[in-house]
Design a protein around this nucleic acid. Structure first.
Lengths: 387, 387
DNA sequence: TTTACTTTGTTAAATAAATTGACAAATAAA
DNA sequence: TTTATTTGTCAATTTATTTAACAAAGTAAA
C-alpha cells in the first residue's frame, strides 16, 4: 500500500484520513483544517460534508474569534461507530466495546478454563462477542472492527499468534483467520505492548508526542514503539524487543538466547529475587515500593537499582531512535513517583540527545481498562492512520 | 511535506520519483513498470515520456520475452546530471563529481591547512568547486546539487555542523547556508555514516535490503540506519548513535556521558590499547589482523573479542529495529573475512528474530571513493526518495 | 448607524492527474 | 497465414483539488 503508486483514490482516502485524524485529536473548524493540512477551504468543505453525512463528524457550536465570522467547530461523533477489543493474556481473557473517543462502553471477562484447545476457546469467544453485540445493541453496521492483543510475538500480517510465553494453547493459532469466518469484519492482531502504545498515542500522553515508546514492566519487559505517529514494527513485525536488548555483554544467559538482557536484570521476577534475599516473605513489587516509601533503605536501594537498569535499556533505545518520551506501565506503575525521578535523572544524564532536548519519562495515563482500550485502538488506528 | 495533504501535484511528483527510482535500480520496460507500481500502462507511458524528454531516461534496446511484442528497456541516462560530493573529515577535505549511476567522474583533495577559520576554508572550497565545474565541463544546469558529509552530529534541517569531534573549526557552522550564497542549488548536509549508508543503499549491498544499518568502525563507531529504503534520522536528526549504546551497565564512563558504550570496547583506539599490552609497537588494526592471520592466537583472541563486543551492539539494534542486514566499513574493513564469520555467528545465535530470518553481515561493497560517493548520494537520494 | 474590513464557508468553473477502453505494433506458436 | 499474446499509445472519461468569486457572519472605527 505504502510503496505503490498514487492516484485520485489514494489522494481522497489520504486527505479524508488526515482530516478525520485532526478532528479526532480535538475539535477544529474547517478553516483551521485548511490551514493545518494545506488544502483549500473548498476541498476541506467537500471532505467534511462527506464525513458529516457518513455520521463520523458533527458540527458542535462555534468558537471565539478576534475578528470576522466565527468558525464552526467540528467534532468526532464518538457514538458513530464502535471498536471491539479482545485481550488474551496468560491468566485471563477480556472483551469490551470502545467508542471513537476511547471510552469503554462495556467489558466482560471471559472464562476459558473449560476450553481444551484453541478451537473450543474460539467458540466461547465468538459466543461472547455475539452476546455483547446483542446486549449493548451495537448494530453490526456501526462496527469498525475487532482488535486483538496478546503477549509475545505475533504475525500481524497473517493474524497469527506465534509463541506466547507459558501459554501453549494459542501457539501458532491464526486467530484472525478463524474469527473472520464467524465475523466478516476488520479483525487485527497486535502484540500487547504495541496495542498499549496505540492506546497511549490516541488517548493518553501520546497525544503530545509523535515519537515515544511505551514500556510494560512486569513478568517480562515489553515495548511498543511509536515513530512519526505510527507504530514501528520492524520489517517483519518482530521489532521492539527492548526487553531482550543486552545491558551487559558479560551477563547471564537469557531464555531468548542473548546474554545480559534487560529482562534478566529489571523484570519483576528478577527484582523479587533480590528482595527475597532481604525479606523472604516478599512477593510483589508493590511490597518493595511500600517498604521503600516507608524509609527502608535496603528496599530504596532496590528501587534505585531498578531505575539504573531500566534507564540503561532506555538510553540505548533513545540513542538509536531519538525518541521524545518514554511511557511506563505494568507492575512498575504502582506508586511510580518513587522511581520516576531517578529514571529521568539517569536517562537525561546519559542520553546523547540531552544537549538538544530532554527525554520525558512518564507513567501511563490510561492504566484503567488499558487492556481492552489498547486492543480496540488497533482498529481505531487502522481507521485513522495515514499511509 | 510528508504529513500534509495530497493533491495532483503530489501524485505526479510521487509517481515520477517512484518510476525514476525503479529504473535507477535496474533497466525495466514500461509494461513491467506498470505491473510493479500498479499504475496503468497509459499513465506509465506519460511519465516515462516526460523523463525521456527531460533526459533522465533513455530507451536501451529490447528484452527477450516468451510471447508477444518484446518490451523496450528503459535505463537511467547516467550523464544526464551530476552530483557534487564534499567530504570533510578530521584530516582531509575531498571534493568530487558523481554521476547518476554512482560513478566517480572527478575527485580532488582540498588542502585547508592554510585556513584560519571556517570562513576562509569555505572560500577555498568554493574556489575548488568552481574550478572543478570548469575543468570537467559540467554545465550548471545539469547539476543535481551538492551533498556534504562530516563526522559527528549535524543539523540536517538547517544544514549546520554541530560539534565534530576534535575538529573545532567547523563547530556550529551553517555550511549549507554559507555555500548557498555562492551556489544557489540544492545543498544538503548529512553525517558521514548516514551518507555512507545511502551510498550503500543505492550502489552497494543496500540494493538487496530495504532495512539495514551501515556501521563505520574506526576511531569511533558510527552508523547510518536505513528503514523502508529511507534514512532514519530520529525526529530531530540525531538518532542512530549506535556507538554510544551501552553494552555494559557497569562499564566505564564514556566521553558522551553514558557508561559502557560500544565505542569504549570496540573502537579502534580501544582495541589498540589491548594489543599494545601484548606488543607495544603495534599501531593499527591492520597489524593486529595480520598477526592473527599468521596464526598468533593472542591476536586471534583480540579479533574474536572484537567480534563479541560488536555483535552485542548489533544484536541490540537488531532486536529493536528488526533489520535484515549489517554492512561494515571503516578500519574494520581490512581483511574482513577474519571477523565476519564470528560476527555472523554471535549475532545469529542471539538475535530474537533468528527463528524468523537470519541477519546478514557483510563488508561494504563500495569502499573505494566511498567518502565522495556517499556525500554525492545525499542529493541523488533527495532526487529519487519517496515521501 | 453606517461603513470598512476580516474571516468563514460555499459554489461553479477550471485544472490536472490517472483510468478506461479501444487499437495498432510486434512477436511467437499453431 | 492465422491466432493469440504482449507492448505501447491515444482520446475520452473520471475524479480529485484548485481557482476565483461571493455570500454570510462578525468586529471596529468613523
Amino acid at each position: 500500500m505504502n510503496n505503490s503508486a498514487r492516484n485520485s483514490a489514494y489522494t481522497k482516502s489520504y486527505n479524508r484520513k488526515l482530516i478525520t485524524g485532526i478532528i479526532h485529536r480535538e475539535p477544529v473548524s474547517r478553516a483551521e483544517l485548511a490551514r493545518k493540512t494545506g488544502l483549500t477551504r473548498a476541498a476541506v468543505s467537500i471532505i467534511v460534508d462527506e464525513l458529516i453525512s457518513d455520521g463520523f463528524v458533527v458540527e458542535k457550536g462555534v468558537a471565539e474569534a478576534e475578528l470576522g465570522r466565527k468558525p464552526v467547530l467540528l467534532d468526532i461523533n464518538p457514538e458513530s461507530c464502535y471498536a471491539l477489543g479482545l485481550n488474551i493474556s496468560r491468566d485471563k481473557c477480556s472483551l469490551g466495546i470502545v467508542n471513537l473517543k476511547g471510552e469503554l462502553k462495556a467489558r466482560k471477562e471471559i472464562d476459558l478454563s473449560s476450553a481444551a484447545d484453541a478451537g473450543e476457546a474460539l467458540k466461547i469467544i465468538s459466543e461472547e462477542i455475539k452476546r455483547m453485540h446483542l446486549e449493548t445493541g451495537t448494530a453490526p453496521k456501526k462496527l469498525l472492527g475487532l482488535g486483538i492483543s496478546t503477549p509475545g510475538p505475533v504475525d500481524v500480517f497473517s493474524g497469527t499468534i506465534i509463541n506466547p510465553p507459558n501459554f501453549d494453547m494459542w501457539k501458532n493459532v491464526n486467530i484472525v483467520g478463524e474469527l473472520k469466518k464467524e465475523f466478516p469484519c476488520n479483525i487485527l492482531l497486535e502484540n500487547n505492548s504495541a496495542a498499549l502504545a496505540l492506546a497511549e498515542k490516541y488517548y493518553g500522553l501520546g497525544k503530545k508526542f509523535s515519537n515515544f515508546i511505551l514500556m510494560v514492566v512486569d513478568t517480562g519487559i515489553g515495548s511498543g514503539i511509536v515513530i512519526n505517529d505510527k507504530l514501528y514494527r520492524g520489517f517483519g513485525g518482530f521489532g521492539g524487543e527492548i526487553g531482550h536488548t543486552s545491558i551487559n555483554v558479560n551477563g547471564d544467559l537469557c531464555s531468548c538466547g542473548n546474554v545480559g538482557c534487560l529482562e534478566v536484570y529489571a523484570s519483576m521476577p528478577a527484582v523479587l529475587k533480590k528482595a527475597k534475599r532481604i525479606e523472604p516473605g516478599i512477593s510483589s513489587w508493590n511490597e518493595i515500593v511500600d517498604r521503600a516509601e516507608a524509609g527502608d533503605t535496603r528496599f530504596l536501594e532496590i528501587v534505585e537499582e531498578e531505575a539504573r537498569y531500566l534507564s540503561a535499556g532506555i538510553v540505548n533505545v533513545v540513542n538509536i531512535l531519538e525518541i521524545e518520551a518514554v511511557v511506563l506501565t505494568g507492575d512498575i506503575f504502582y506508586k511510580h513517583g518513587i522511581i520516576m525521578d531517578s529514571l529521568s535523572r539517569y536517562v537525561n544524564e546519559r542520553a546523547m540527545t540531552r544537549k538538544v532536548h530532554r527525554v520525558g519519562l512518564y507513567a501511563s495515563e490510561i492504566a484503567k481498562n488499558a487492556d481492552i482500550i489498547g486492543a480496540a485502538t488497533i482498529v481505531i488506528d487502522d481507521f485513522i492512520r495515514l499511509y
